[in-house]
Amino acid sequence: MTELLVRQVGPMVTVQDRGRKGLLHAGVSGSGPMDGPSMDLANALVGNGADCAVLEFAGTGGVFEVSEPVRFAVTGGAVDIRIDGVAAFPWESHHLLPGQRLAIGAMRDAVWGYLAFSGGIVTPPVLGARATHLRSGLGGLDGRRLAADDRLPLGRAGAGPLLAFRRFWQQVRGPIRVVPGPQDDRFDAAAWRDFLEEPFIVSPSRDRMGQVLDGPRLHAAGGHDIVSDGTVAGSIQVPASGRPIVLMADRQTTGGYPKIATVASIDLPRLAQTPSGRPIRFAAISQAEAEDLLIDGRRALADALAGIAEKPPVATPS
């Protein structure tokens, strides 16, 4: 069994895969990656299937070693990667040999990084997934963040080439698009004007459950308590404080605050990756437009995955 040895680790590193399906009715959050496309690309770069588990880190990665040769790739954003002190690029795969130290520094201009190893992380699945849900302690490594000296099992992986993109994978820019509702009618015209015309600042109050936004306080003329109903990733709930909270991967399955709008699936990873302190703006689109964008986004991701190819051989100094 190949082992991943954790020598040092950032404050927020968890095992994630595509998450738990079909258990929202039982109160079980889906979990899974904050930036799904980046996770999919990391897996593809090491020759893994899309269902393999990876490490997700917020901010800083850590220092890792392996017991057998593997391939690894880091995605999510720009980040300093060193193999025994030698710099390596993100968004492509590299070999890591026993005895070598892989050091992954801090993300620049992004928040969530993905570290995939060939074979995937094979901690025991819980309720059908390896994704970690911190609040309920499910999945991953004992349902918790990684700590120094942890050891994680890696799956069997055949030898394979090192891979990189032929085309660069780039997310769109512009406002974060939202679909009004389900409780859009609890907010009056003034609240809607503030919501769509004023900038919001991505607050450092953020985790895998939710992202708090600073900016104009949104007043729900219809009251800030509703009879609890279901939530989705991207639900923008507004508690009595008026500070919107965007619900993310580890969200509670139901909630009692009115939800003014829902972030379009295409833009949710982009919001997750926006560094704290940055301004964002919202733009309202229809449900049908958001559906189109979701479908286009899947196609773009499929194109990026199809555009992964063998890295050109490195010229060795003679």
Binding site: G230, T254, I295
Partner: peptide, 20 residues
């Protein structure tokens, strides 16, 4: 999947299979 709550049913769907 669906999520039954007090007074509503949340229905999650794949728009690539069928639009809202």
């Amino acid at each position: 999947e669906t999520v039954p709550t007090y007074r509503s049913l949340l229905v999650l769907y794949d728009p690539a299979v069928r639009r809202a």
